[in-house]
Amino acid sequence: MSRFKSSERYIVSDDLGKAVDVAIAIGRPLLIKGEPGTGKTLLAVDLAKQLGKPLVRWQVKSTTKAVEGLYQYDTVKRLHDSRFGDGDVGDIGKYIELGPLGRSFAAEHQSVVLIDEIDKADLEFPNDLLHELDAMSFSIPETGEVVDAKQRPIVVITSNNEKELPDAFLRRCVFHWIAFPERELMAQIVAVHHPDLESELLASALEAFYRLRRLDGLRKPPSTSELIDWIAALRHADIDPAKLLGAGLPFLGVLLKKEQDVTLAERGGARGGRH
């Protein structure tokens, strides 16, 4: 029985639930990959909620450096204080601010740390975190202080596959790839976002959606989040479900974001889709 289960906010497959359990039990970071819009980030949010633990989120950008997750030394503030006299600048510790990972190490209670979109950062980024994630400890050279994790945080890492991650890093992670949901699971996911959706509209929308995804040669197939937006648009405009099964889908622009894809869908739609 997996401990981490679907909630009213988030639907989890068995395999994913098991991967979460394993990561927590053996104390390794959980690396989640999958198509955009398959709910990688939401997983960490919901896990924290289910476990009743605080979520510490670290959003990685292209310029993010590994050390920023641990701590930052605000040298400019210290310089300012030394020039314009405010407080004791001899105490460097005052100018050290812990980053997301550092805070979760230092906290009294266990937290869930989300390192979101790790593939956005430089290629060296994951390697720079290896030691800290293994030992769950780091030192601050400026003050000589060592920060040890009081409770090993539960670490969830997401990647959109924009860059490949180094082997040494991958070896240390529990890995799960979120497959694109099949129709049945997708119906449950949609229900989370549109609890009072008429079943007829749901069935037609899913039919149209999966037919669209089956089109050969789409540059960017529509994802879950686009489906959810699309259904919102359909409901708002009070579209007749029967219209979704013919050619010429309404609000196609919500589902497809590339011009070639729209053209392709319009052509494919005329043929009634490829099976």
């Binding site: 029985m1 997996s2 289960k5 679907s6 989890v12 497959s13 068995d14 395999d15 639930g17 497959a179 949901p181 099949e182 049945e184 699971l185 449950q188």
Partner: peptide
């Protein structure tokens, strides 16, 4: 006993 959830792809 297998959990009753839905397995992706199944």
């Amino acid at each position: 006993v297998h959990p009753s959830g839905v397995r992706i792809g199944g």
